[in-house]
Amino acid sequence: MDFDFTDEQIQLRDAVQRWADKGYDFERRRRIVAAGGFDADVWRELTDLGLTGLTVPEAHGGLGLGPVEAMVVMEALGHGLVMEPLAQTLLAAAVLQRHADAALQADWLPRLAAGDRMVLAHTERRGRHRLDHCTTTATADGAGWRLAGTKHVVPAGDRADAWLVPARLDGALALFCVERGAPGAAATGYATQDGSRAADLVLDGAPARLVSRDGDTALAWAVDVGIALACAQAVGVMDRTLALTLEYLNTRKQFGVPIGSFQALRHRAADMKMELELARSMSYYATLKLGEPAPLRRQALARAKVQLGRSMRFVGQQAVQLHGGIGVTDEYVVSHCFKTLTQLELTFGDTLHHLGEVAARMTDEAGVAA
């Protein structure tokens, strides 16, 4: 099996990386954080690059590319510490293509490609990452539906043009689309620890369009796509974290020599590199398993999230320790890498949650043969 990227995928990665290096430097990122964690100009630049329509079919105005290209892009954006919620747009496009009817696809896929934002709003209090925990309800209203409930920590929720919302319909989980400006829908935004934005979404009889009556399947697909994208983003963040740490070790001097010449510190840097490559391989694994049947896919994505969680924690903590006090100052980029890794570890379920998911899906064949 050939695991090398194609020339087109490499060109895509390099183009996004060049934009991030030149157009999204650390100082611009700090200004965006100070202004609230979202920049419309940055989003417009991502749209102009074609990234918002990356996986949207060409018939709907997109580029028609696949999950591997999405992974490549998210890794490059992670390396640039880009906060704008492109992953949510890619997630929404995947959900609409697999679960929405033709009318909803024709309405929203071109809008996503053109730069409108749709985000997943599924987290509720006391859910503890469980997808079956949902108290939001849906009731029939003529030919449509109305939703009532509250969703928390919705990524860039107050900057979204629409939300994908799971709700209980006749006791079963269904997935709906609620558009911004709908009466009874209000999103209150706030900053998250890595400088990006989230929001609490309150729905009080808000009109909605049905995406899928099989909400369990649709939500599981959405979260698995989100995990794969988060894994790719985390690999990019860790790659930059390691590069910054190696640069520091080779320039910071003690006793007249770079501290990178000390064997103990070199071993720790090597351990960081090993964890990064373990995470990278599991990110590839996660993306490639998106095409598998649901049980195998869910197991694979949980495995990937466990390894990525462990690697993110290790790389982030080692980077801060090797830098010393400067590693936690707001003026230095490594502290922002650490915050981003910490937040990504919690995204779509933390390491402990997914370790439980892996354990629950183990079969007799996973044991040691007698």
Rank of each mutant, 00 (worst) to 15 (best):
S283D: 00
G142I: 12
A294P: 06
G215Q: 04
L301Q: 13
E365T: 15
T329S: 09
Y190V: 04
A269L: 00
D107F: 06
G171Y: 12
E45A: 10
A138N: 03
A366E: 11
D14G: 03
D14R: 15
V223D: 04
D48N: 14
R28S: 05
R31F: 03
V16C: 03
T55Q: 00
E179Y: 04
A148Q: 12
E69F: 03
D41W: 10
G291A: 05
L265P: 04
F176G: 11
Q233K: 13
D239W: 05
D330R: 13
L296D: 11
R197D: 05
V257D: 02
A302F: 10
A191W: 02
L242N: 04
R313G: 12
A319S: 15
L120G: 01
T245E: 00
L322G: 06
S335I: 07
R146H: 07
T245C: 06
E292R: 12
Q11S: 14
L242P: 01
V119F: 06
H60M: 10
Q254F: 13
A198G: 11
V42D: 09
R266Y: 04
R197A: 15
R126K: 14
Y24F: 15
F348Y: 13
Y248I: 00
M272T: 07
T136R: 01
T340D: 03
E275M: 14
R209H: 12
L242D: 01
W108M: 08
A140R: 15
V315H: 06
A156L: 02
D39V: 09
F338K: 14
V153Q: 10
L210Q: 01
A279L: 08
P293C: 03
P207L: 13
M238R: 02
Y285M: 09
L219Q: 05
Q307H: 12
P183V: 10
A70M: 13
A369W: 13
L81E: 07
T123W: 04
E365N: 13
T329V: 13
A208M: 05
V178K: 08
R297S: 05
A198Q: 05
E247D: 14
E75P: 08
R128D: 12
K273F: 04
T52G: 03
V358Y: 02
P110E: 03
L81P: 09
E124T: 10
W221C: 00
V237S: 08
H353P: 06
H122K: 07
G53C: 01
A218E: 01
A243N: 04
D2Y: 05
A286I: 05
A59I: 11
A243C: 06
D239I: 01
L355M: 14
E357F: 06
F262L: 06
Q343R: 12
V178S: 10
A370L: 15
V328D: 07
A360I: 01
A206T: 12
S261E: 08
G325P: 07
Y190G: 11
L296P: 01
R213E: 12
Y248T: 10
D48Q: 14
R209N: 11
A106V: 07
A304M: 08
T245I: 02
L301P: 00
L63F: 04
R303V: 12
L112F: 04
D39F: 09
G325I: 08
D141Y: 06
H79L: 08
Y332T: 10
L46I: 09
S311F: 09
R361W: 04
G226A: 01
